[in-house]
Write a protein that binds this DNA or RNA. Sequence first.
DNA 1: GTGATATTGATAATCATTATCAATTGATAT
DNA 2: ATATCAATTGATAATGATTATCAATATCAC
Lengths: 150, 150
Amino acid sequence: MDLVKREQSALEGLEALCHAKGLRITGQRRVIVQILMDADDHPDADELHSMVRKVDRSISIATVYRTLQVLEQMNIVAKRDFGDGRARYEISVGQRDHHHHMIDIESGEVIEFYNQELEDLKMRIADELGFDLVDHHLELFGTRLASAGD
Amino acid sequence: MDLVKREQSALEGLEALCHAKGLRITGQRRVIVQILMDADDHPDADELHSMVRKVDRSISIATVYRTLQVLEQMNIVAKRDFGDGRARYEISVGQRDHHHHMIDIESGEVIEFYNQELEDLKMRIADELGFDLVDHHLELFGTRLASAGD
DNA sequence: GTGATATTGATAATCATTATCAATTGATAT
DNA sequence: ATATCAATTGATAATGATTATCAATATCAC
């Protein structure tokens, strides 16, 4: 899915779901979704707030927190925990249902990856345990391998 | 490993590692490790503090937090995040290097499991991404399957 | 345009966790 | 057994991320 269509689908997702659930589509919410769609990292609430205020300086930090919670409940945004003491966020509409993160513990860099075998295994493990898988958290933490030429 | 030997190995682990790192083996630390060894759940710091105070009511919450951090650094205790807004802890000495958790989102029950295939896959994915795996967080969240007889 | 109600901004409050510092304790040398 | 020293502790203030409160504002159906 190219970027423009992805952006459109997130906003359309926002509008459709808000309408379905009797929630308002406010300017603040549009801005927040737009900023997250344009982000290529996983900002925390404070970072997101800084970017949002560049578009509309009246939007408050409380609105950012509340809106993130609403968007998460609607599965437009995914909440992540990379172990640095605060929640981080990214758009989830228009992408694969899940992807995972490898965090470079030296640089802090976050590499996204998808692995179908892992998806299958999770489902199988849940089934073996007698559960219907609803959600999961997976983050890998590692250090860059020294290449053979190093 | 039966329970008594497991308990002994955690305390022995505490003593050996403290000595190796020039740290004191204090009464508070022994109590905290003992309580965690006896726990069959994953208490948060406050729950652990309540149990610890039944043994020695002078031990402060700050000591519990500091001690948990030290024990985590020494790999005697593992810190977990089950998504309920606070850290949870369990003994890791004397057990498999890793195990994972399935959290029943309806009851809050935590089921521990180990899956060798998952361990292998994690290592393989890390390698494919160019990383040396150092740590990971994995929690599965689900709801109990209705059995065929239900 | 109006009425109903969801949402907002500003900030106080909450909560889990950590920092501070004087007092205490553990380990070691003698 | 005692002295010494530095790690550790208890009590609590402080911190930072997040949430609650409430009057004011904005959205949306009609």
